[in-house]
Amino acid sequence: MKKYIDQGKNDTRSGFGAGLTELGRTNPNVVALCADLIGSLKMDQFIKENPERFFQIGIAEANMMGIAAGLTIGGKIPFTGTFANFSTGRVYDQIRQSIAYSNKNVKICASHAGVTLGEDGATHQILEDLGLMKMLPGMVVINPCDYNQTKAATIAIADYEGPVYLRFGRPKVANFTAVDQKFEIGKALHLTEGTDVTIVATGHLVWEALIAAETLESQGISAEVINIHTIKPLDANAIINSVKKTGCIVTAEEHNILGGLGESVARVLATNHPTPQEFVGTNDTFGESGTPEELMDKYGLNNKAIVNAVVKVIKRK
């Protein structure tokens, strides 16, 4: 099984900040907006280098989404920055009408997604954002897995014409994908080849899936780990082709299993190649305060949960 090495723990939000900084240097149409969370979104360097292309909106996310939509009229490529909760649920109708239905080239960049936000608790830990955003017609939904991939995704979405939701997080996690990777929207990445089970993971759960695959290998189970960074449009062929080989699948995400990646995968398989599937994710619940590790463990969002799901799904073949 192919091994991946952690190049040093880092937060995905810093990958976003680094990507935005690079865009500031290479694409004069890129502008950034923030609703009073510059430090949390790691936007400082972009602002330092491009003060005239940054707009501090204040604590007014609805206004931020509308202003971003307006900035596209005149050719700007706005990147909005706030927490995932305030990037989606708080401003859903503004995104729906002024951005998605109006097909505006806005990049909604959302940090602190999921329970790994940690101690702030459930008010800030959105676990419904992928579902909310993937339901909007025309919205691209991306949840990269580490610093390098988040940086590459941030740079790539500037070249895509249309609304994008980019989701990332707060904790420092393993950074294991290639530094100089080319990010292709909608393209699944095969991380390991396997024959007994397919594990499809997104975001922080991808590294957990790789750890799970190693554990499974030691138990004589060969797992094929696929990194789905783009939840919409979903790389259906990659998933279908993999389960044709393995015969079962586990999906893993830091999100409610109602409305998340797993349901998108289930739809693809139900209509193309019905396959036993188990879901790793939160189950119709809010989060709570705690450390990221404690929360991942309590809510069944780690490598142990993935191993358990694999054992279960293989029995259903």
């Binding site: 502008v31 005239e52 292309r53 707009f55 609805a62 206004n63 931020m64 989404m65 509308g66 202003i67 971003a68 939509a69 307006g70 900035l71 596209t72 009229i73 005149g74 050719g75 700007k76 706005p78 109708d93 503004q94 729906r96 009408q97 002024s98 239905y101 109006s102 505006k104």
Partner: peptide, 26 residues
């Protein structure tokens, strides 16, 4: 240039467009 109907959103959009005009020296 924008969808409207759900109320209260147009002024933000207009401000964004006005800001783009300033950036474009228009």
């Amino acid at each position: 240039r924008i969808a409207s109907g759900s109320l209260g959103q147009g002024l933000s959009v207009a401000i964004g467009a006005a800001t783009a005009k300033k950036l474009n020296k228009d």
